[in-house]
Design a protein around this nucleic acid. Structure first.
Lengths: 301, 301
DNA sequence: GTGACGCTGTAGCGTTGCTGCATGGATCCG
DNA sequence: CGGATCCATGCAGCAACGCTACAGCGTCAC
């Protein structure tokens, strides 16, 4: 029962399959399958069960995977205990963020971390469906994710730590020459019968527009589904519809007008997701500290 | 950084050397040395330092060894998590006890555990110096140890769990025809100028006699040093001296007379010592439960 | 000073765990 | 309804890791 094998089991569970887990762990599916089979023989309980052409963890498997988290945490804590005796912590930290979050946070984060000796940041932008952010933590140290203001938390359970960064309001984006562009704020009633540009179903903040529509009494008329906010901005600018855009990230531009919403709460929460074992690494902690401080700067600016 | 290697480091620390650790781990000293060297290279900090012809852990080594305990605990907890899904826990538990404790507890413990399906007990008697009981936990699952009533606790730190079992009074043992044999109790003043049979220096309850002597105002005159209480009993019976003997273990016999001491607190505490990782095993827990219940029976009898 | 003890390096060997490929179900689509 | 596809799994082969055995060297005791 070695931690590598336990980690493999955990990944099979979180990724939902042998092949996906193998990709994350940089192994062949065969190796993953063999590891699980061996582990299964060792504990004498079935850990996985086939479902369709894939497989999922049995209750026993889930229990073991959960226990595996504590093993990984204890191991990283042991590493950290030694690092305390090294004068300067050292290592690379992989950070992923959804695009607009990356645009908002990563440049300043890189600047801040550049001042810290020994920490190397590797950044990536990842645009995934709402439910898939947690799975990214298997590949990344820090995952910057967003979710609707009112929505539930993340599904990672005890395995992932959620670090709240900031709340970003979503404003109505209209063309500069739109009638509503001159308003200081708009109320749900003003939004009737507008042509909306929304994000694809299942992606973060997709549900926010529905909540806003519910306040105006009718379901919004969605004419386009576009995930990239820059494309959205260009479409709005050209008069092809209105949309909801995050204030901090798109408030500065002159291409569209952002009008605050009143009488309805619209916003997104930006969180950092970290696997609990990764969170034990000293360098990861330092990066999270910087990220949190940065978020405070933005929020109070 | 695998748990096996961490365990090796921990053992080198607790056993105080490569050779002793190798014996416990059923390895050659060379293998142990190589593991430590490799671990050292991995963390980049010296973990051991030579002292004379042996070696000890550096502060960094101590820190890592302490963290290693949590790793081992987490791993055993993972195993236990799976065992929950097996209907009956199964396994062998190695129990060691000092001789008189073994005589007092092991027969009844074996009887009790015999009623539990799946648990196999392997018992040993181990007579070691006071400070060496903790080190036994590396080889044994449960170590039944004793210490003076008033003494400090055990030195194992966070790594070993101490389960108090019972307190056993130490009575004055005299020949059946001794003047004091008719007394219902004896006071420190009655003990002046008696020829004492004590245990060897450094062994458990060796200090108790000194404490008793202090109350009588003079240092006891020790004429023999014998560790085995049965030998002590035979010597006392034959009139070669008096001694302190544990009440529960030797009170039933007719070879000597045990007279309670008054005006001075003399006794030993019997504890079970268990490494925290071993304590996570379900079967070990069950055995400890029985041991505790058994101690209550004796104490209230 | 000499013997014993204890830690450490090196050579050699066995075992473990991986990759690559082939097989057998289960699903999707024409 | 049948072929294509995807996924998990078994087996052969190979590389790497970790152990034992043995020699070397420093330290302590007599």
């Amino acid at each position: 029962m070695d931690p590598r094998t336990l980690e493999t089991l955990r990944t099979v569970g979180s990724q939902g399959g042998v092949t996906a887990a193998a990709a994350v762990l940089h192994l062949t599916p065969s190796a993953v399958s063999q590891q699980v089979a061996l582990l299964q023989r060792e504990v004498g309980v079935p850990l996985t069960e086939r479902v369709g052409r894939g497989l999922r963890l049995t209750p026993a498997g889930e229990a073991l995977a959960e226990a595996a988290v504590d093993v990984a945490v204890a191991l990283e804590r042991a590493r950290a205990a030694c690092d305390e005796f090294l004068e300067r912590p050292q290592g690379v930290v992989r950070v992923s963020a959804f695009q607009s979050g990356a645009q908002l946070l990563l440049p300043a984060l890189l600047t801040r971390v550049a001042g810290i000796e020994g920490i190397t940041l590797e950044c990536t932008d990842e645009d995934v469906a709402q439910d898939d952010f947690v799975a990214l933590t298997d590949r990344m140290d820090v995952v910057v994710a967003h979710r609707p203001d009112d929505g539930l938390g993340w599904s990672g359970g005890r395995a992932v730590q959620v670090v709240p960064l900031l709340r970003e309001p979503l404003d109505l984006a209209v063309p500069l020459d739109h009638p509503l562009a001159q308003h200081a704020e708009v109320r749900p009633d003003d939004l009737r019968d507008l042509p909306w540009i929304a994000v694809r179903e299942g992606f973060p903040v997709a549900t926010v527009l529905g909540a806003v529509g519910a306040r105006s009494g009718e379901t919004p008329r969605i004419v386009h589904r576009v995930n990239d906010f820059h494309v959205v901005e260009a479409l709005v600018e050209a008069g092809h519809g209105v949309s909801l855009l995050p204030r901090y990230t798109f408030g500065g531009g002159a291409r569209v007008r952002l009008v605050p919403l009143a009488g309805v709460r619209a916003g997104r929460r930006i969180d950092a997701l970290v696997r609990r074992d990764r969170a034990e690494r000293l360098v990861v902690r330092r990066v999270l500290d910087e990220l949190r401080a940065l978020a405070v700067d933005i929020d109070t600016a």
